[in-house]
Simulated assay, not measured.
Amino acid sequence: MADIDTSGGGGKHKGGKKRGKKLSTRVDFTPMVDLGFLLITFFMLTTSMSKPSTMEINMPFKDEKMNVDDQTKIKESQAMTILLTGKDQIVYYFGIGDKVQNPLVTDYSRNGIRKILLEESKKRNPSIDSISIYRTMLKEKRINEETYKKNVSRIKAFKDGIIVLIKSDDKSRYKNLVDILDEMNITNIGRYAIVDIAPGDLKMINENPYVKK
């Protein structure tokens, strides 16, 4: 609201010379303050708070008293090991023990570890592409969230699906671990675990000529 103040200036002065009145304006910002509080209250009541997102991490359970028969056994054809090393590089190989295939080097790009995981997952789990169909059905509200999660869990738990072992050396960064866990979620890898790196894995990294030192 703007008020016009006519109290200042103008009138007769010494010498009998008459001057025109000077009009000054004064702006009242009280209504603007009220409007500001109304807007703040409106946004506080209508804006939904963001929910914290959680990341699922499967850690191996260590029990020295556990029998050998009770331990989870991984088939050679299912095992894939990912070694996180420095310079944002990944060394990966397939197999277990003495039957390990030649280790290869890749990165965290779309055409790197993500492409490899997608290809290997499809080889072992033909139903893995069905997850995108269920996701579309959920988005279109043709199924509820409970049905979606149930079907996705069933597909990811396919008994002959790929099993990924994630290991990191002392040169890798915390960001690298977060990135590879994101890739597990993006590529719908249902079974993976973070385990300690073995001396043989460190030797494999150090002796690989394609790993940046």
Rank of each mutant, 00 (worst) to 15 (best):
T6L: 11
G8E: 09
K18G: 02
F29M: 04
F29W: 06
T30H: 09
V33Y: 05
T41W: 06
F43P: 03
P52M: 00
I57H: 04
N58M: 10
F61I: 13
K62C: 06
D63Y: 09
K65T: 15
K65W: 02
N67E: 15
Q71A: 15
E76K: 11
T85Q: 00
T85A: 05
K87R: 12
Y92V: 00
I96A: 04
V100T: 11
D107V: 04
Y108G: 08
Y108A: 02
N111G: 15
N111F: 06
K115H: 10
I116D: 01
E119A: 13
E119S: 14
E120L: 12
S121N: 15
K122P: 09
K122D: 14
K123M: 06
N125H: 05
P126E: 02
S127A: 15
S127Q: 13
I131T: 03
I133H: 08
I133V: 13
R135Q: 12
I143Q: 03
V164F: 00
I166M: 06
L181K: 01
M184S: 04
T187I: 05
I189W: 02
R191Q: 09
Y192P: 08
A193P: 04
V195Q: 11
V195D: 14
A198W: 12
A198L: 09
D201H: 07
K203T: 10
P209K: 13
Y210W: 10
